[in-house]
Amino acid sequence: MTALLALEAVSYQFPGNPTPALQAASLPIAAGQRIVVLGRNGAGKSTLLLVASGIVRPQQGRVWLHGAPVDYSRSGLRRLRQHVGLVMQSPDDQLFSASVWQDISFGPLNLGLNAAEARQAVQEAAALCDVTDLLDRPTHALSGGQKARVALAGVLAMRPQCLLVDEATAGLDLWARQQVVRVFDRLVAQGGTVVLATHDLALARRWADLVVVLHEGQIVAVAPPAEVWADPALRALIAPPEAWEGL
């Protein structure tokens, strides 16, 4: 089976930073998976997602989409972005429009949908993320959690097959968090894949099919949560001992 998306030995180093953010990382991502990326601050989680979404081009290694290497031409990236969505760590970085409705409509229109189809996509995504009653509100008058859900809706409106999410559940209250996880589940049930970078160990344990453990830019494990939890060496790379109590 060819993976939906795959990283093959990718390395990435930020300009002006001598330590590589990602080193020879390989990760096949199949359809219909719940993947959680764990690792401490600076481990390379965000970088992994940036590479997987084609935002940054790795200096070494390759990214594959549906069994073909991603070419970084305009059309190649366009194809990648039709299938792979990225929700950024800070919603303020993602929301560019002052109107929630217009912000969500941006992605669908870029996919080439006509106005009626785009309107439909906006409504669906808004309902999915529970932001329908925020549609005519200004972006800057939303709370942090509301912004996060609007940012998610803006990406879901493009109906990606693979959703890359950078800590979207941080800053959400427990209802909103549950809501967002339900949205992820629905996407997975439709054959999509969600890759979530997070520090939420409880969520990883409960929800993930696969846990990717990153440490200093290297992928040190890709395994079901039970296996990661059973390995003290891996646990030590992710969080201090107290954090694991009761999980």
Partner: peptide, 19 residues
């Protein structure tokens, strides 16, 4: 912001639905 716009398929034009 540029990264986020790029990820959503920005191609030089900020097209949004009319209100």
């Amino acid at each position: 912001l540029e990264v986020a716009l790029t990820a959503r398929g920005f191609a030089g034009e900020l097209r949004v639905l009319p209100l």
